[in-house]
């Protein structure tokens, strides 16, 4: 019982990892700590949603877990470049309220990543981090936007350690 009182996120992270391994997330190709020694630095590879412009894509994400997790959200960034109105093309920073103000300790790393995958198909062009693609969306040039997204999804595709 007293173990559940542990102050560091270690116990919960191990628990989440175990849950992921026996019950994988459809949105991900892989997920886990970067190394056995550093449990607060994870990495993930996300799949694109079939039937969208992101179809067939693979993106590597970098996940940093703060010491007061789960009371504070993890920091998630795209390592692989992605063309999306709410993701900074250069830094990979993601604009998602879930990762900032509306974080709740009830979320896990996997549910967070699922939300990020959902963000791919429900972009908010009105609060953009990538102005160029957001402008295409706002002007209604969906053909152009889709072409651009498909181009980057294909050309930037993460190819390391393919397991699918």
């Amino acid at each position: 019982m007293s173990s559940s009182r542990s102050q560091t996120p270690t116990k919960r992270l191990l628990n989440e990892l175990q849950t992921y391994q026996s019950d994988p997330n459809d949105a991900l190709v892989e997920l886990g700590p970067v190394s056995d020694n550093e449990l607060t630095h994870w990495t993930a590879v996300m799949k694109g949603v079939p039937g969208t412009a992101y179809e067939g894509g693979r993106w590597k994400l970098d996940i940093r877990i703060p010491s007061n997790y789960p009371n504070a959200p993890p920091e998630v960034k795209f390592v692989t470049r992605i063309c999306h109105p709410n993701v900074n093309f250069k830094t990979g920073e993601i604009c998602l309220d879930l990762l900032k103000t509306s974080w709740s300790p009830a979320y896990t790393i996997t549910t967070t990543l699922t939300s990020i995958q959902q963000l791919l198909t429900s972009a908010e062009p009105d609060s953009p981090l990538n102005v160029d693609i957001a402008q295409l969306f706002r002007l209604g040039d969906f053909v152009g936007a889709e072409a651009l997204i498909r181009y980057y999804t294909e050309s930037e595709r993460w190819e390391g350690r393919q397991s699918v």
Binding site: K11, L14, N15, Q18, T19, S22, D23, D36, N37, L39
Partner: peptide, 16 residues
């Protein structure tokens, strides 16, 4: 780390 790795989890039941 491996020694502490076996953490009881609800998904333990899935394959039973």
């Amino acid at each position: 780390m491996n020694s502490t790795y076996d953490i009881p989890d609800s998904t333990d039941w899935l394959k039973t």
